[in-house]
C-alpha cells in the first residue's frame, strides 16, 4: 500500500517536473513547480493512511525540491550551451532511477538482501556512481517484535547490508548515509506476519538527485 502511494506520488512529481522543465527556464516557474508538486503530493497523501502521510510529505517535498533543482540545472545548461541532448539524457537517467523500487524487504531477524531486490539495487548503484552529486539516505526498519534498542541496531544492520551492496557495486561511501528507526516508524500497524513483513525494510531516499 505504501509502495502504491509512493509510486503515485512519484508519478505526479515526475509529471510536474517534466512540465516545469519543458515550459520555462525562469526561477519563478521552478518555484511554482516546486510548490505545485508539494501541493499535489500533499493532496495525494491526504488520501493515504495517516501512517503514510508524514513520510510521503517529507519524501515528496524532498523529491520535488531535488527535482526542481535538477530541472533548473538542466534548463540553465540548455539555455547557456544550447546542448539539450545532455539535459535530456540526465533527465532520462533520473527518471530511470525514480522508477526503481525504493523499498527493500527482509526476512525475520535477517539482513540478507534477497535476490529479487538486486535488479533495483543495481539500478540505484549505477545511477549513484554516475551522478557523484547524488546522495541517498538508507532508512533501516524492524518489526515490533523484540526490544526497541535491539531493533534500532537490527534496522541499522539492514541499512548497512544495502549500503555494502551499493558500495560493492561502485557507489562512493560518501554518497550513502544509513539511519535506523528500528520499530519506531512502522508502515503497517497490524499485528500479523503480513504486516510485520511490510515493516522489516530499508527505504532508499534520495536527498539529492
Amino acid at each position: 500500500m505504501q509502495v502504491g502511494n509512493l509510486s503515485k506520488i512519484i508519478a505526479i512529481s515526475i509529471l510536474v517536473v517534466f512540465i516545469g522543465a519543458c515550459s520555462s527556464t525562469g526561477e519563478t516557474a521552478d518555484a511554482t513547480a516546486s510548490t505545485q508538486a508539494a501541493q499535489m503530493a500533499a493532496e495525494a497523501a491526504a488520501l493515504a493512511e495517516t501512517q503514510a502521510l508524514e513520510e510521503a510529505q517529507v519524501q515528496a517535498q524532498a523529491q520535488a525540491q531535488a527535482q526542481a533543482q535538477a530541472a533548473s540545472d538542466a534548463a540553465q545548461k540548455a539555455a547557456n550551451d544550447a546542448a539539450t541532448a545532455d539535459a535530456a539524457q540526465q533527465q532520462q537517467a533520473q527518471d530511470a532511477a525514480q522508477a526503481l523500487a525504493h523499498v527493500i524487504y527482509f526476512d525475520f531477524d535477517q539482513s540478507t538482501i534477497k535476490a529479487e531486490f538486486r535488479t533495483a539495487l543495481n539500478g540505484h548503484a549505477a545511477y549513484l556512481s554516475q551522478n557523484p552529486s547524488a546522495r541517498v539516505v538508507l532508512e533501516g526498519h524492524a518489526d515490533e517484535r523484540g526490544t526497541r534498542e535491539y531493533n534500532i541496531a537490527l534496522g541499522e544492520r539492514r541499512g548497512n547490508a544495502v549500503s555494502r551492496y551499493l558500495v560493492v557495486q561502485g557507489v562512493s561511501v560518501d554518497a550513502i548515509e544509513v539511519v535506523s528507526f528500528g520499530e519506531e516508524r512502522p508502515v503497517n500497524a497490524g499485528q500479523d506476519s503480513a504486516s510485520w513483513s511490510e515493516n522489516r525494510r530499508v527505504e532508499i531516499r534520495y536527498i539529492n538527485y
Binding site: E149, I152, A153, E156, E177, V178, V179, S180
Partner: peptide, 8 residues
Amino acid sequence: SFKGINGA
C-alpha cells in the same frame, strides 16, 4: 552525536 546510532 555521531553518524549512525546514538542510543540507549
